[in-house]
């Protein structure tokens, strides 16, 4: 599905004393299979943009088109397209309401009007993807799960709808390092297998370095940068203007470069940085 955002603006509580403009003049185009990170400081409009893309808010100006149809429109056609956009809000576990784990996951697929056999298959499949054992979880009450398990359950509920577009809003907030690592790996594997469009909202540069190939930087409701992750996330002046630091591997490479090593500085992950340093080291024989 092609997502086109044109001249998008959004104001909360317009024409009241509490009016607040969250987005203005945002233009974006996201193609099927892209992995896009949306980065920005708190209050920069990231979550608002995500909700507009999912058709959950009506734009104040401009529009969001899903394959050419306005995302928020009240037509059956638009609803069908909206259902192709899976949206995991911040703390998605706060939306859990069912009495058992499988019923919670089945809520979305049932709303799609699938038959029982298909729903059951999707529940098992989605639980497996997020690393919950469908057999063990068959009778579990969601509220008795641990925080990390509840997060994964909520994600399973969204994945079970098999949306071709998945929006994750701060997916790793409040997860421990292992839970975070596991979640990122699973999402990436699934993305690669299904040509999923992945939109990740975060102010965690490390998450974005892992998940995104393209990064859109939002500052005060406007697009401040839009380009390959390696370029945007290694642009120190740009990031510092938006009150971010470059990711640690980039900081290390930049420091090395300053002291005379001819290393490339746009390696975002620790493993990539290590490879880069090793290559330069062996090519120079350890001499600067």
């Amino acid at each position: 599905m092609l997502i086109s955002v044109e001249g998008l603006g959004y104001t909360y509580a317009p024409s009241t004393p509490l009016a607040r403009t969250a987005l203005r003049g945002v233009d974006l185009e996201i193609r099927q299979g892209e992995r896009v990170g949306i980065l920005g400081p708190t209050g920069s409009g990231k979550s608002t943009l995500a909700q507009l893309i999912a058709g959950l808010l009506r734009p104040t100006s401009g529009h969001v088109l899903l394959d050419g149809v306005a995302a928020h429109a009240r037509t059956a056609d638009a609803r069908l397209r909206r259902l192709k956009v899976g949206m995991a809000f911040q703390y998605p576990e706060h939306q859990i309401f069912e009495q058992t784990v499988p019923r919670e996951v089945a809520f979305g697929p049932r709303n799609l009007g699938l038959n029982d056999a298909e729903v059951e298959a999707r529940v098992a499949w989605a639980l497996d993807i997020v690393g919950l054992d469908p057999v063990e979880m068959a009778d579990r009450v969601p509220l008795t799960l641990s925080g990390g398990e509840m997060r994964r359950l909520a994600l399973a509920g969204i994945l079970a709808m098999r949306p071709p577009v998945l929006i994750l809003d701060e997916p790793t907030a409040n997860l421990d390092p292992r839970g975070r690592q596991e979640l990122l790996t699973r999402v990436l594997t699934w993305q690669a297998e299904t040509e999923l469009t992945l939109i990740v909202i975060s102010h965690n540069l490390d998450d974005l370095a892992r998940l995104a190939e393209r990064v859109v930087l939002l500052v005060a409701g406007q697009v401040a940068a839009d380009g390959p992750a390696r370029e945007v996330l290694s642009d120190r002046p740009l990031l510092e203007d938006a009150s971010f630091d470059v990711p640690p591997p980039v900081a290390l490479l930049q420091a090395l470069r300053q002291s005379g090593w001819a290393v490339a500085t746009n390696r975002l992950l620790a493993e990539e940085a290590a490879t880069e340093i090793a290559q330069v080291w062996s090519s120079t024989g350890g001499m600067v």
Binding site: M87, P92, Q95, F97, F107, G108, N111
Partner: peptide, 28 residues
């Protein structure tokens, strides 16, 4: 919004579908 993103009919759709649609809202 979270439940609508999962296909629930809460603010749109026929009335007889909207009322049960509030259960997934009130429990959380």
């Amino acid at each position: 919004k979270a439940q609508e993103a999962r296909g629930a009919l809460i603010r749109t759709g026929p009335l007889w579908k909207r009322v049960p649609g509030w259960v997934p809202v009130f429990v959380p």
